[in-house]
Design a protein around this nucleic acid. Structure first.
Lengths: 331, 331
DNA sequence: CTGAAAGCGCTTACAG
DNA sequence: CTGAAAGCGCTTACAG
């Protein structure tokens, strides 16, 4: 058995109240008793029980994070920002891989609630009505990252997807491209999906380029859907000279598809991605993409959740295009 | 305030003992009282407090995972396997990004200990003596993944790195390559580093090929070090026709370096990786690599940790070479 | 079948 | 400066 506060109190010949004060750095003891107690703690290898503490303090110093997919680099970068910031503030993080599954999401919300987490970060997931109810019922602070909520009064941290997408498309137009395809996320996703499509379309029509559904293929943000979408696009509209992909992973999928077919990027086809994860840096050729400050958003999410410094208001983070080698200027 | 077991007991007109029995599915109550209590629970939206439970049960239903780097695909895949398996068994997982830093590692070990986790999984990190002491002192079940320990009597789950590396090198030899370079992890890593170098050297000398330190470059398993190492190799030994990289990320780095220099893979240079993460699949060209069953190792780690089914013994997992398009047969 | 009570390991007024 | 005691929200013998 691990020693408890009782054991050290007994051993040191003081009360547990005194031990408690000492380990919590409060006042109310002589240097001498402090020394005595600290020694006993060392000797016995006493470690306070955070569970017991949590019960009385009503704070567990842990937060939960809901992610739609643990394995993407987007999630990983976000998670790294969250974990780093949490650790710095002395919080632990419990991860929940929802796999974009409704049932799992609700299960996790319950578990986190039972485990009395001090807050929950929900990432990149379009919130269904069911979750929204569950979230309201929990009465636990929540912040959203890479997503937002229509009904819920909850702070979110994200980029302006519409604007970012508009600019990515405009970038291609300025490079002289006129037939521009888009590899989109799913239409149903009203947050990461729809606005990016709208931004793309608007940029096109603002520049008097024709908007055609034939130029849009619908994926799910993951690699495989990227290669499939590129194939569809090539089939339906072989005349396109550039493609805007709504995620780096899909952009890399497009790259793979092009490579397989002997299409040279950027000579024959230009591709711009979205996210600026490490996938973009590692791609061949290195991918020009829309940078989202993902790691920073993760950090900010926990600060906001724990009310450190920042206000409880939502924030739109800055984005920008980072130029690498996957887009060519047309002559 | 959230309702407690006291509130529902009062409301239902029974004792908290009865409520406890009912929510824990024990016996000792009539169907009628059960119904009454369940109704009250529904009405009040009562959720049991896992912290209070943990205090009395001495089980928190949560495990901790130490990772050297949250952002690699290797960690992500492992984590996904761990999380999936844990969730299935009704456990939560706390993540700890050690960043390969000793101080952080010790901090995390302390925190996990305080939070009374039921077990700890330590991944891909060469264990220093300090940690080993800390681990022994904790008296919490531990299992190692992708690593092992010289002193500690703790089960581990990994591949035979020496063998795998030997076979990867042999594979290149069988394809007709005679000048084979290696991009290694750090020499200091006695587990993921050294054995892979040894396997490579042994395969070479078993096939009467010369072993030269000039043919080895030392990275740190990450992408950037892969490109740097490839550059070094090209400089030192421009005559090599094939490279074995000790991680997929470094292999992709090598690919990038080759691309930048106009060296065609596999026509001019063959590359084989290690891990078989999604990086290998997404690479251009798709990367031939040594497959480690990473996700499965994650799953197995939690089962072993929680003593479900498997024994407490270490296990060497099978590996194999998965052929894609980055290695050419020499004529 | 059911409840009173002790106890899990802490923190925190309160009293001295 | 220090300690006895209550209480956090549960579970679990024990008694009836």
């Amino acid at each position: 058995m691990r020693p408890t506060i009782n054991d050290v109190a007994k051993q040191a010949g003081v009360s547990i109240a005194t031990v408690s004060r000492i380990i919590n750095g409060q006042t109310g003891y002589t240097a001498e008793t402090r020394k005595k107690v600290v020694n006993v703690i060392q000797e016995m290898g006493y470690i306070p029980n955070a569970i017991a503490r949590g019960l009385v303090n009503k704070r567990t110093k842990t937060i939960g994070v809901l992610l739609p997919s643990l394995s993407s680099r987007l999630s990983a970068a976000l998670l790294k920002g969250i974990e780093s910031s949490a650790h710095q503030l002395d919080y632990s993080v419990i991860i929940c891989d929802t796999e974009s599954d409704g049932k799992r999401t609700v299960e996790y919300l319950d578990v986190l609630s039972e485990k009395q987490v001090d807050g929950i970060i929900i990432t990149s997931e379009w919130l269904k009505d069911v979750y929204e109810e569950a979230i309201e019922a929990m009465k636990i602070p929540v912040v959203l990252v890479l997503t937002s909520s229509l009904h819920l009064q909850v702070p979110y941290i994200k980029v302006d997807d519409y604007q970012a997408s508009y600019q990515a498309t405009k970038y291609l137009i300025e490079k002289g491209h006129k037939k521009i395809g888009m590899i989109s996320g799913t239409k149903k996703d009203k947050l990461a999906g729809l606005p990016r499509i709208e931004g793309y379309k608007q940029a096109l029509s603002d520049n008097r380029l024709s908007v055609s559904e034939d130029h849009i293929a619908y994926g799910d943000f993951a690699y495989k859907s990227g290669v499939r979408c590129m194939e569809e696009l090539l089939e339906r509209s072989p005349d396109i000279t550039a493609v805007f992909a709504a995620s780096d992973e899909m952009a890399v999928g497009a790259l793979s598809c092009a490579y397989k077919r002997g299409i040279n990027v950027p000579a024959d086809l230009s591709i711009i991605g979205y996210d600026d994860t490490q996938d973009a840096e590692m791609a061949i050729p290195p991918l020009t993409t829309v940078h989202q400050p993902i790691y920073e958003m993760g950090e900010m999410a926990v600060k906001k959740l724990l009310n450190i410094k920042e206000s409880a208001e939502s924030v739109i983070m800055p984005h920008y295009i980072i130029e690498r080698d996957s887009v060519r200027k047309m002559d």
